[in-house]
Write a protein that binds this DNA or RNA. Sequence first.
DNA 1: ACTATATTTCGTTTAATACCGAACTATGAT
DNA 2: ATCATAGTTCGGTATTAAACGAAATATAGT
Lengths: 229, 229
Amino acid sequence: MIEGPYIAEAAALIGDPSRATMLSALMDGRALTATELAYSSGITPQTASGHLGRLTQARLVEVEKQGRHRYYRLANAHVAHALEALMNLAVHGPPRHRPTGPRDEAMRFARTCYDHLAGRVGVALAQSLLKSGILEERNGAFEITANGEAWLEKLGLDLASLNKGRRAVASRCLDWSERMPHLGGALGAVLLKELEAREWLLRVDGTRAVTLTKSGKAGLRRNFGISLD
Amino acid sequence: MIEGPYIAEAAALIGDPSRATMLSALMDGRALTATELAYSSGITPQTASGHLGRLTQARLVEVEKQGRHRYYRLANAHVAHALEALMNLAVHGPPRHRPTGPRDEAMRFARTCYDHLAGRVGVALAQSLLKSGILEERNGAFEITANGEAWLEKLGLDLASLNKGRRAVASRCLDWSERMPHLGGALGAVLLKELEAREWLLRVDGTRAVTLTKSGKAGLRRNFGISLD
DNA sequence: ACTATATTTCGTTTAATACCGAACTATGAT
DNA sequence: ATCATAGTTCGGTATTAAACGAAATATAGT
């Protein structure tokens, strides 16, 4: 009784195509300016301003003023989570005409999901970590093994700090394009950062797609036994 | 790029107050008829019929014809999950006037969340299971301990069958009213069934609220050290 | 056959809101 | 000071879709 309207409020906000596209763009994890967001969803700045105002008021996004720019980002992981959940619904929807562009293919191959890696590469990475006993799947969740802890230390990653936050360390995040789990949570986030730092992955223009560099391809094969294409 | 519109499609469907209320009613886990759903959201059957048609087409709900009745239920756990995620957004929203009725209070006290127990009672139960070492919280997920397995067997619950499905056994489900975790997953579901079978809990009319019986109050205190009010 | 109930289809009204153009404010650069 | 860029506010238009009444269809019971 009580909750229907509240759900509707949030869902209606996300339910507008322009707003949904803007939120999608923010799934990147980064902050974008109002004009960038307007451009990304193909509307004029005036219209985007109105949308962003409503999204901010509803606490779905947060603003940060910097000079004459306003940087918008998703307000918290809950928002990203809800967007993911909706994405999974869309995929489970009716089999109907869904045109697949080249950009689409790039997204399916590798993309960011809020702050971790998704797509074929993300899923392959998760599978590799499971196979080599770094992660374990228990009761539908991911778990770092003793082996895994040692492996992390060797990588120079600070396990203690991962455990610090209230955030799940290794969460099992269902991939909408692959329908297989990829790795999220704090570990997923630092792993993506690490891959970017090594320049194995490069972010692409204004989308969430990422490309695999040559060294990345080699590195993934050498370190994780992943061969793609 | 590609996904914005898809998210929007699902979200827009959920975003209508009448539809959201109907979906909420189905969070019960049970199947309801078209007229019951119409009544629950305060609209006429014609209007509800239209809504339900769209929800079915989008595979958010499923229909089963039985004579002249049509029973609607949520299509899958993904839908329930998305609704939960949206509910959490709503709670994290702006502090603004939210009238609280008596029915509201009943929901906050104890209710079903898809197929497990939520509300103050649900949260208290989860806390008790954690405290007595039946469950463990690891990396933001729930986990059954060795102690817990023994306890389950004593209760006559079949642990093997819980592990069978692909479903998580003990999932940590954020409670929107308490902002604390309650127990979901396969274990959450059988536990709710058990409590209902013992008549410790009774479902209330057409809502998701459940009431605690006298024996339930006593039982919870005796077996779980939970004292409410 | 006849009646009652459940649900859908159709047509119309009405309310909400996304969108843009124009004008305005704020910040930064020259 | 002047200009350019980023963003917002306001007003009007146009589209969408939610809602109901009326009437049709389907099933069950008598």
